[in-house]
């Protein structure tokens, strides 16, 4: 089986994010970067599926600046077999990323594409779905599983995505409003993953060393023949509206009183 998994370089969610005074973007100086957490879950799932279905191969793909090689190496250190970096500086909207991936997938012909459901920088949650439609594939977004993250299945590192015996389809449980939906999707397909599909592994030191020797192919949008002119442009970035400072109340009686007579919400 050939599994393609995407990994985006994003601002670390533990870094303090501040808007630039000129309102063009956020301050990036002093901000740490890392792999999008949802993508790490996608990588973990790809590795579990590979290991349960040998011989198989996992390719980690990133579109972004040259520095995104770091995030590809982190996927390789987790266990992915090879990497592809589509180098581009500056703004790439989700649609451009979907079209870059489309071209790459037409070349690589993977059986399954795993992606994070959203990247925690632009919080778009659209790339996988756009890609599925461009390719004419089925999709299963927000992949999760019935078993909890504390379950025996998770401890045994079983894949949450259940491949059919003939590997022509997969069953995917999805986190949707109101509950858990289960779909059967024909392969090749796009699956975007949610938080409770698995707990991603940490890369061990020997695997970090090994990852340095794994192949990473470098491409550009031009080499793929894709025009990355954005359909969505960011015009302005502002800080969110601030909430007026609140107060601490000494006890429950005061709280109830305030909620009743001041805020009038109970």
């Amino acid at each position: 089986m050939k599994i393609l998994v995407t990994i985006k370089r994003v601002e670390d969610y533990e870094s303090k994010i501040k808007v630039k005074p000129d309102n063009t973007w956020i301050v990036t100086d002093g901000v740490n970067y890392r792999a999008n957490p949802f993508d790490e879950i996608a990588v973990e799932e790809a590795l579990r599926l590979r290991d349960a279905n040998m011989p198989s191969e996992v390719i980690a793909v990133s579109a972004g600046p040259a520095a995104a090689a770091t995030e590809i190496r982190s996927a390789l250190a987790m266990g992915a077999d090879k990497g592809i970096l589509i180098k581009h500086d500056g703004w790439l909207d989700s649609d451009a990323v979907a079209r870059l991936l489309q071209t790459l997938i037409e070349r690589e012909k993977p059986d399954l594409v795993l992606m994070g459901k959203q990247a925690v920088d632009v919080d778009d949650n659209v790339t996988g779905q756009l890609l599925a439609d461009y390719l004419g594939y089925g999709q299963a977004t927000f992949a999760s599983k019935k078993e909890s993250l504390e379950s025996a299945e998770e401890k045994a590192k079983k894949p949450g995505i259940k491949l059919a015996a003939d590997k022509k389809s997969a069953q995917v449980a999805r986190e949707v409003d109101g509950g858990l939906e289960v779909l059967e999707v024909q392969l090749p397909a796009i699956v975007t993953v949610d938080l409770r599909l698995n707990v991603p592994r940490y890369a061990s030191l020997p695997n970090i060393m090994k990852a340095k020797k794994k192949p990473v192919e470098e491409l550009t949008p031009a080499a793929l023949g894709v025009d990355v002119t954005p359909k969505v442009k960011v015009l302005k970035v502002e800080p969110p509206p601030a909430r007026a400072a609140g107060i601490k109340v000494p006890d429950v009686a005061t709280l109830v009183n305030k909620l009743h007579s001041e805020a009038k919400v109970i």
Partner: peptide, 8 residues
């Protein structure tokens, strides 16, 4: 960015 910024 998790609501740390509002973009137009």
């Amino acid at each position: 960015w998790a609501g740390n910024a509002v973009a137009t």
